[in-house]
Every structure is written in C-alpha cells, then in structure tokens.
Simulated assay, not measured.
Amino acid sequence: MRIGELATKAGVSVRALRYYEEQGLLAATRSTSGQRHYPEVAAERVRLLQVLYSAGLSSKTIAELLPCVDAKVSTPETRARLAAERDRIDAQIAELVRARDKLDAVIALSTSPLSGCQVVPA
C-alpha cells in the first residue's frame, strides 16, 4: 500500500510515517518512480509504534527492542529493559494520581461557600 493509504489505515500522518522510516522503525520498498510501498502488516507495526511512543519510550529504545519483537524472542536483557520502562511508567502514573488527588482537594475547598477564590474565565 502507498504511504497515504497506510497513514489513513493506521490513523497517523504521512509525516509520522516518514519519521518512523528515518528512525529505522518502519521499512518501505520503493517503486521505480520513488514512491514508498508498505506491506499490509505495516499498519499493525505503526499501531505498535504509537503505543510504545505514547508509553514514553524513545525512538532509540524502540529501535533497540523491535528486533526482539519481530523475532518473537525475549532475552533477559530485553525483559529487564521492558521492566525498567514499566517501572518508569508506574512512577509517572503514581505522580499523576498524586496530582489528581491534590486537584480534588482544591476543588473540594473551592466549592465551599466560604472560599473567596474565583477563577476568571480565559
């Protein structure tokens, strides 16, 4: 499929696909006129990349892990790397929960009839 088709199918921009290719995360063949062509499984790869990026993994980390994902091989090193990433995400989640709890406390205080705090709409 061509780059525009893949972008539509995967729900990403053409620019994102070009970036993934530059980073070595996505491969395309080229037609004689230079157009990119992707296999049908490329949409699944792009969705995986989106999940990994949204989890906060860097391009470098993703590039290091993809060969193991592609080969369906799990080594002690890759498991340790993934566990470290999971721990980092867990720490971020805990920090977000603390921030949400603080916001809830402020909301509770600001709904009190005695609170003199008013927010001016932007």
Rank of each mutant, 00 (worst) to 15 (best):
111 T>L: 13
107 I>Q: 12
117 C>N: 05
8 T>E: 15
93 I>H: 05
4 G>R: 07
16 A>D: 05
113 P>T: 12
31 S>L: 13
34 G>A: 08
45 R>A: 13
77 E>K: 12
59 S>A: 15
109 L>S: 13
88 R>V: 01
19 Y>H: 15
35 Q>Y: 15
85 E>P: 00
115 S>C: 15
71 A>L: 08
71 A>M: 04
70 D>E: 15
73 V>D: 09
73 V>Y: 01
67 P>H: 08
88 R>T: 07
28 A>H: 05
4 G>V: 07
17 L>F: 08
69 V>Y: 14
96 L>Y: 06
61 T>P: 00
58 S>Q: 08
65 L>R: 10
94 A>W: 05
79 R>Y: 03
65 L>I: 14
86 R>Y: 01
33 S>H: 11
66 L>Q: 01
1 M>E: 12
9 K>N: 03
95 E>S: 04
83 A>V: 01
26 L>Q: 06
18 R>N: 04
88 R>A: 13
91 A>P: 05
63 A>R: 15
92 Q>C: 02
27 A>Y: 01
2 R>T: 02
83 A>D: 13
94 A>G: 04
34 G>H: 09
110 S>V: 05
60 K>Y: 01
68 C>P: 00
84 A>D: 14
6 L>Y: 08
110 S>F: 07
55 A>T: 11
78 T>G: 03
30 R>F: 05
34 G>T: 07
121 P>F: 10
113 P>S: 13
60 K>T: 11
122 A>Q: 12
58 S>I: 03
112 S>E: 12
78 T>V: 15
1 M>K: 11
53 Y>L: 11
66 L>I: 09
102 K>E: 10
33 S>A: 15
